[in-house]
Amino acid sequence: MMRRRELVTQVSLFLPAFILLLVFMVTPFLMAIVLSFTNQRLIPGPVPTRFVGWQNYVMMLRDSQFWAGLKNNFVFVLVVVPLQSAFALALALLVNAKLRFTKFFRTLYFMPTVTTMVVVSVIWSFLYHPDGLVNRLLSSVSFGHWEAVDFLRNRSWAFPAIMFMSIWQGVGFQMLIFLAGLQEIPEFLYEAADVDGASPIRKFWHITLPGLRNTITFVLVSTTILAFRLFDQVMVMTAGGPQDATYTVMLHIYNTAFRRLNIGYASAMTIAFFLIVLAVSVAQRFVLWEEKEG
């Protein structure tokens, strides 16, 4: 009797989330798989929707914009994930120190993260302007030797500029997770190290880092997935330009589906991209887990 009531409670607690996931995650995903084999349009025309087999996937192989976007996605992940995580760890160590005003700084570093990405992007577009703050600053620290750069319209600068801004915006989130991880590490380990006369650097390598292993795994995996979803910044700041220098797969999917109304092809890219990100995450898990056991 008791068991049964428990089961009812469990199911009733589980059901709302399950239904929401089913309706908004599972169903669209299954639909995307089906649509990826059709020529479905956003506004269906007189040409009836039909199955086109693997045509969409074959098209993807020859689609230079898809590959340009994918390349950028990987570059972004390879640059941003390590840099952002290292930077977040440094910040976490700083604000974890027993100094005055740490609460103030914690709030300060977290502020960009809670600000909407679109707002942040618009503000940074102004900062990166040829007459903007960044150029002025570089000009004044170089005593006028810096020549103003139109960061977002320059093919070699645009993507690094967006990466820099993304790291700045997102770092607060990882900092917070690291901070929680740091506070889990028992204080007596440090006290023991002090007694042994260990230097701060040795304490960091032998106590802090091993203590953060699970946290680091979590941060790396979640940051990677977030980094692959790169969209808002490039949409607002460059629309993928100049010459696809900041184009991403998400932007290509969006343009294909909602600007050019080609749902079938966009679905195919969604599925392919999902599989790629899944493969990367699984590989990452595999590597990080192995280290943990070793």
Binding site: G45, R153, N154, R155, A239, G240, G241, P242, Q243, N255, R259, R260, L261, N262
Partner: peptide
């Protein structure tokens, strides 16, 4: 033409790149 959404999307992209010096 029903293909206009594609036309304008690719045209605008080319224009944007041309402005940037492509």
């Amino acid at each position: 033409t029903p293909a206009y959404p594609a036309l304008t999307s690719y045209f605008a992209e080319a224009i944007d790149n041309i402005i940037s010096g492509a």
